[in-house]
Design a protein around this nucleic acid. Structure first.
Lengths: 209, 209
DNA sequence: GTTGCGATGTATCGGGCCGATACATCGGGG
DNA sequence: CCCCGATGTATCGGCCCGATACATCGCAAC
């Protein structure tokens, strides 16, 4: 999952590890607070070995450099890396629909075509609906088997599920009618979108005044 | 974290692995769908080595047994295990407040005293508030840097944070006034609650009709 | 009746990700 | 001048996951 995120960010611009971590944190703030270095550096090494990214010494004219040994390392995506990114983004395994997987895919939706977006959105909805049904089951039939706190936890979880299903449903409706999510601002990254990018949003309805 | 959950469940009744997994799934359905055996069995081994639990051959008179080799293994908590459980439940490290950690602690709140419950609830609230502030920051100052989908993800996350803070606030208020969570049914497990158990709930207000 | 299938049940393996830790440079305030 | 916080790269032990293998039980279909 992290692989996809790194490839996605490096597609926008080359970066070094520290920067990557920060961008990851803001882009995926909902999913994971901040990626650990104990994950990041091994993953970068892995991607490098696979040939998806290359390591290049920092250009001293651009970045105020650490003047000597062990200077910062800038990572850059390769052509094969871009292919890999597209593959990962479009293919849907079961892990595509868990919390982390879905979040990463969603965060890069602007780099996908509508069909893929719909497929992922619907898969995620199905997943959450299953979770929801499981919780309803427990709440209805195991009312006396569990204590008050556990029940409260389940109720809160059920609520979150129902809320997410509604959210997904709205997104799916928007996709089908050819609208981007309800965002007042403009789209970022008008650079190299492949496939059809979502059109400007007409802001269907206002729920956060 | 799993250690705490296992100890908690085995405190109620001895069980074998398969059963444990199912109970774990219903008790922590909100947190993790189902624990992997690749996690469960090594953890059981670890707990056994540490002396928190013991392994005993299944009693054939109770459980319809698999008639021969590799019969099912029933795990039972030890006195040291109960101590360990109490320690884990009451102590609060930073991991106590992340999603999984908080969920497990909360699920066993009926085995804690009110002071501990309040401490954990407030720690969790603080954690979520920090996440919320981070998201607000990103949404306000990075409006043009991120694309519509990423922004929508952040908005949804922010919404979930605000909702959880409200939930926690309500729970904290209830705790302070000496009420259990708003549950219509009775408390389960009136067996060996240590410390002060939360009293019956007067169902303060109705928000899920 | 036997055959096959789904639920029950125990166990291992490779790999992803985490927190803790170590080490090094840089700019600025006391 | 010296220390401290931000920047920056890297490793290690450990938790947890998905995939896989293997074995038994009850039952229904053929």
């Amino acid at each position: 999952m992290l692989e996809l995120a790194i490839l996605g960010l490096l597609q926008e611009t080359p970066m070094h590890g520290y920067e990557l971590r920060k961008e990851l944190a803001t882009k995926l703030g909902t999913i994971r607070a901040a990626i650990s270095y104990g994950t990041l550096y091994p993953t970068l090494k892995r991607l490098q070995t696979a040939g998806w990214i290359t390591e290049s010494a920092s250009d001293p004219s651009i970045i105020p450099p650490m003047t000597s040994k062990r200077g910062r390392v800038v990572y850059k995506i390769t052509a094969e890396g871009k292919e890999r990114f597209a593959d990962l983004l479009a293919q849907a395994g079961p892990e595509t629909y868990d919390d982390a997987g879905f979040g990463v895919h969603f965060a890069f939706f602007s780099r996908t075509d509508r069909a893929t977006r719909l497929r992922i959105l619907e898969g995620r909805r199905r997943r959450i609906e299953e979770r929801r049904e499981g919780l309803r089951e427990v709440l209805s039939r195991a009312g006396e088997r569990l204590d008050a706190y556990t029940l409260e936890l389940q109720r809160h979880g059920l609520d979150a599920c129902e809320r997410e299903v509604r959210w997904l449903e709205e997104l799916i409706t928007n996709e089908r009618s050819g609208r981007a999510p309800a965002t007042p601002g403009t789209l970022g990254f008008p650079d190299d979108l492949s496939g059809d990018a979502p059109p400007e949003s007409p802001r269907p309805h206002e729920d956060r005044p």
